[in-house]
């Protein structure tokens, strides 16, 4: 299956099949960029990355397309943050610094869940949470409820809700430890398309 997909990613003249690439990768790349920059910027970043691919059509990326795309997004985000830092006032600087630090974290080899096809594992990890914890996590993350609302609905304090969320994240992280801290020496290539 991988082999046939690889073929599709290239046109007959050996150039990248940008349309297909865009379809497959633009959404995960957008949400990846969203970790570091705002929504409109994230859209631009994805545009820029694919435009660059178009400019350099003959790019041979057969071994690690996935890794290359996510790295390109990171670099674009970094460029944006640096530009912004020059312009912004001192108080806003700390957010840029935090985001830069996060990009650095990923540049040094950590990979995000977004790069991998891990929906099932994530869902299983949620299922495995203690009941109260799961309830609060799902309400907060999936139903976009304010913590005040959740607290009122469940008859607990807002502090308790915060605690449950922190605990949920911790438990999920431990559950997914096999996937999370991977050092990407050989970035997984086409197998990790995210739907």
């Amino acid at each position: 299956m991988n082999a046939s997909r690889n073929k599709q990613l290239y046109l007959d003249n050996g150039h990248l099949n940008l349309s297909l690439l865009f379809q497959e990768y633009s959404q995960p790349l957008f949400y990846y960029a969203l970790k570091f920059v705002d929504q409109e910027v994230a859209k631009d970043v994805v545009q820029d990355v694919f435009f660059k691919l178009w400019e350099d059509q003959s790019l041979n990326v057969s071994s690690s397309l996935n890794g290359l795309l996510f790295t390109m997004v990171r670099n674009k985000c970094l460029q944006h943050l640096e530009k912004q830092k020059v312009r912004s006032r001192y108080q806003e600087e700390v957010v840029s610094q935090m985001r830069e630090d996060e990009i650095l974290f990923y540049s040094s080899g950590a990979s995000s869940l977004i790069e991998k096809e891990l929906q099932m594992q994530l869902q299983q990890a949620i299922e495995a949470l203690p009941e109260k914890c799961r309830e609060v996590f799902v309400m907060s993350r999936f139903q976009d409820k304010m913590h005040k609302e959740i607290a009122a609905e469940l008859g607990v304090s807002v502090k308790m809700v915060e605690k449950h969320i922190s605990k949920a994240l911790q438990i999920i992280r431990v559950q997914l430890k096999d996937y999370l801290p991977l050092l990407v020496l050989f970035p997984s290539c086409f197998s990790s398309s995210v739907k």
Binding site: Y31, K35, F105, Q119, I172, R173
Partner: peptide, 17 residues
Amino acid sequence: YQEKDIWDSYDLVKDSK
């Protein structure tokens, strides 16, 4: 950052934007 990543990844699962 891993905990943040878990949270962020759900934006993709939900396609929240």
